[in-house]
Amino acid sequence: MAGRLLLSCLKNSSCTSIRNCSHLKGPPINFKYGNREIVGYGMNGEAAYMDLEDFPMPAIRFKETTPDIQVVKNKEKGDWKKLSIEEKKILYRASFCQTFAEINAPTGEWKSIAGAVFFGLGISLWMYMFCKHYIYPPLPSSFSEEAQLAQLERMKLLNVNPIWGLNKRT
């Protein structure tokens, strides 16, 4: 379907390039959000910034282009060997918020999740105890072990289910 759309766009005389094609959805590539450049298609075609390991290239830059970043970007167009490590870091941080190591670093979020789970379990235990003590009626006398043994003896005497039988050992 995307191929057909592209072909119909290119066959149309008003479409001189893909960026000018009115059939394609979304803003043009050189459109800016505030002062942040759109540098790609993005996940699901949305111009949004997200630090994701499985989708490492967001559609827009992380920071807006400031005059000091613009100076380094102009320097970037030349030889990269002339850039210092600090300038490369400035360029990276202008485009991305976190490195892969920072994305994969443990956040400690599991502690709050475990706390919420144990809090919920505690509340449900207290609700069960409240219902058991104040709401539910007491169990009938036939639930006691003596009553169940007496019922089993009576079933033996009456020869209940003689083909498959009851356990004769008790």
Rank of each mutant, 00 (worst) to 15 (best):
N20I: 08
R154T: 11
G34Y: 00
M155G: 02
F62M: 05
V117N: 11
T107D: 14
I123P: 01
P27D: 15
I90G: 06
D54V: 13
N20C: 10
F96N: 01
G120W: 06
E37C: 05
W126Y: 02
A94S: 15
E109M: 07
T107P: 03
R169F: 12
L125T: 06
V39S: 00
L10G: 06
I103R: 03
V160I: 08
G122D: 06
M57V: 12
D79F: 09
N167Q: 15
P67N: 09
G26C: 07
S13W: 10
R4G: 04
L91S: 02
L52P: 04
K77L: 14
I90K: 15
I69V: 15
N44Q: 09
G3S: 08
E153L: 12
Q151P: 05
D51P: 00
K111W: 07
L91R: 02
K88A: 11
K132P: 00
V71L: 14
H23L: 13
G40H: 02
G120S: 12
A59K: 00
E102V: 02
K32E: 04
S84C: 03
E37V: 04
K132Y: 06
F31D: 12
Q98L: 14
G115D: 15
I38R: 09
G108P: 04
L125Q: 00
N161Y: 05
E64L: 00
L10M: 12
G40K: 00
K75A: 13
P106K: 07
N161C: 10
A150T: 14
G42R: 02
S124V: 06
N161R: 09
A47R: 01
I90P: 04
M155K: 07
P138K: 10
I85P: 09
C21H: 06
F31P: 05
M155Q: 07
P58H: 01
S142Q: 11
P106E: 08
R93F: 03
S141D: 10
S124N: 05
K168N: 10
I18A: 06
K73D: 07
L83N: 07
Y128G: 06
G165T: 09
A101E: 10
L121V: 02
S17P: 02
K73Y: 13
M129K: 11
I113A: 05
K25W: 05
S13T: 15
Q98Y: 06
I38Y: 02
F143V: 12
F119E: 07
Q70S: 12
E145P: 10
S17N: 13
E87Y: 06
L83S: 09
A101Q: 03
N104F: 01
L152A: 11
I90W: 08
A150V: 13
G108R: 09
T99F: 01
I18R: 01
A105Q: 07
M50A: 14
S141C: 00
E109L: 13
N44F: 14
Y41Q: 04
A59I: 01
G120H: 07
E86K: 14
G165V: 10
N35T: 08
I123K: 04
G78S: 12
L5D: 08
G45D: 02
L139W: 02
L121D: 01
T16A: 09
S95V: 00
W80F: 08
N12V: 07
E87I: 09
N104L: 00
S22D: 15
A48L: 06
W126F: 10
L149E: 11
K81M: 07
N167Y: 15
E37K: 05
